[in-house]
């Protein structure tokens, strides 16, 4: 895994042009997470309709990995129901930690494979995912 692969085209594309970036009016759920070791922060908001993620947006600041990962995450969960989102979140965690089963096709997110070789950066790629887990918890309450 070279640096070029870590900072490959698709990652840089999501960084320079993040999808679903910004704020939602009338969000049903809103979570703010930060990485206290570096000060990066992400806000994640969703609107749920008939048990599905109708709209999702993220806001905040961070490095290429945290922003690209957040951007791709919003794309993959859009329109999915609670159980599906849970499965995606679990699979991404299994994928990035190398522990547990990856049950679904993570599509573009698989490019984060290489992050495992930069252990200090795994946290960056997981920041938005910890926000998603918080939201899932709230949805289940």
């Amino acid at each position: 895994m070279s640096l070029r692969e870590l900072y490959q085209e698709i990652v840089m594309d999501h960084y320079s042009d993040p999808r679903n970036f910004g704020k939602l009016e009338d969000a049903d759920y809103h979570v703010h997470v930060n990485n206290p070791s570096c000060g990066d922060a992400i806000d994640l908001e969703v609107i749920v309709n008939s048990g599905k993620i109708e709209q999702v947006k993220f806001d905040g600041h961070g490095c290429v990995l945290s922003q690209a990962s957040a951007s791709m995450m919003t794309e993959i969960i859009q329109g999915k129901d609670l159980a599906e989102v849970q499965e995606i979140a679990d699979s991404f965690r299994s994928f990035i930690t190398g522990k547990g089963e990856v049950k679904i096709d993570l599509e573009d997110l698989e490019i984060f494979e290489g992050v495992k070789q930069f252990p200090l950066r795994v946290k960056c790629a997981c920041l938005s995912w910890s926000a998603l887990r918080e939201i899932l918890k709230k949805m289940q309450e």
Partner: peptide, 9 residues
């Protein structure tokens, strides 16, 4: 350019 990315490079 985020400091984390600068640091990794």
């Amino acid at each position: 350019i985020h400091p984390h990315d600068i640091s990794t490079i």
